[in-house]
């Protein structure tokens, strides 16, 4: 069963050219992720994490290299994939209520009857209550706190039951308390819905705490410094897990990997 990985990237490279100046973002990335695996990707700020995610999502094309989804090279955006973007305030539509924002990715051909439309509304409602926002269905995003907005983005990402969920530093702009809650919520959803998640972050602790395996990226132009299996027991607890010696070891390892190449 687990023979074919859900997503596989082989020898990706990517540069940007603007005004005659070329920036190499990705030097060489090769990895695979199995279905059901929680994969963390850590790397210093500006190293090319978002660029990698955009290539994996089919939003951008790598210069060279291939990406296979479910064994097939991708041509465009894989339909069974969804994304939680780095900045929720630039990805939620202010003119829609939270319910309509969550319902947005669900197909709504005009041929659908009233019953099918009601069904998508129910689906969106269900996703909203999974993230604990059932009571805020009629609010607009700008009426919610940052943490709540990121929950809406999460609900929108899971409403279509994607096979792969890509998350780009989803909790970077909320306070520590909210962050811990959202991390726990994401783990819960992963288990409940059997999701495969690729989580990009620059927070080493977050990567270790949530992942089955962590890819450590080098500074720009980025490549993989190390693949680190995280054998911490599940379910993981915010306090207990972080106190384990194994957790501390992983954290020390990754710190050492990243410290010789500080942020540019």
């Amino acid at each position: 069963m687990a023979e074919i990985p859900l997503i596989r990237a082989t020898a990706l490279t990517k540069s940007f050219t603007s005004r005659g100046r070329t920036t190499r973002a990705i030097a060489d990335i090769t990895f695979a992720q199995a279905e059901g695996e929680f994969l963390g990707v850590v790397g210093p700020s500006g190293c090319g994490k978002t660029t990698l995610l955009r290539c994996l999502a089919g939003l951008d094309h790598p210069d060279t290299g291939t990406i296979e989804f479910d064994g097939h090279p991708i041509t465009g955006i894989p339909p069974a994939l969804s994304v939680v973007f780095q900045e929720y305030n630039r990805s939620l539509f202010p003119w829609l209520t939270t319910l309509e924002n969550v319902r947005f990715p669900l197909r709504r051909p005009s041929s659908l009857g009233r019953r099918a439309r009601a069904a998508t509304r129910e689906q969106a409602r269900e996703a909203l209550s999974r993230v604990g926002l059932a009571d805020f269905a009629d609010h607009h995003p700008w009426q919610l706190s940052g943490g709540m907005q990121q929950r809406v983005a999460l609900a929108r990402a899971i409403v279509s039951r994607p096979r792969l969920l890509l998350m780009d530093e989803p909790f970077a702009s909320v306070d520590a308390q909210t962050r811990a809650t959202l991390e726990q919520l994401t783990i819960t959803l992963t288990v409940e819905l059997g999701l495969t998640v690729l989580l990009i972050t620059h927070d080493i602790d977050e990567a270790i705490f949530m992942s089955d395996r962590v890819l450590v990226l080098a500074a720009r132009p980025t490549h993989i410094l190390r693949e680190l299996p995280i054998d911490l027991p599940r379910p993981r607890d915010d306090v207990e897990t972080r106190a384990l010696p194994l957790f501390q070891n992983h954290r020390r390892d990754i710190h050492h990997l990243l410290s010789p190449t500080p942020d540019s």
């Binding site: 999502a57 939003l59 955006i77 339909p79 994939l81 969804s82 994304v83 973007f85 900045e87 630039r90 990805s91 539509f93 947005f104 990715p105 197909r107």
Partner: peptide
């Protein structure tokens, strides 16, 4: 228009 909006539309197919 916020490019992020268009990304969401593309991801949503």
């Amino acid at each position: 228009v916020e490019p992020g909006y268009v990304d969401v539309a593309r991801i949503s197919g």
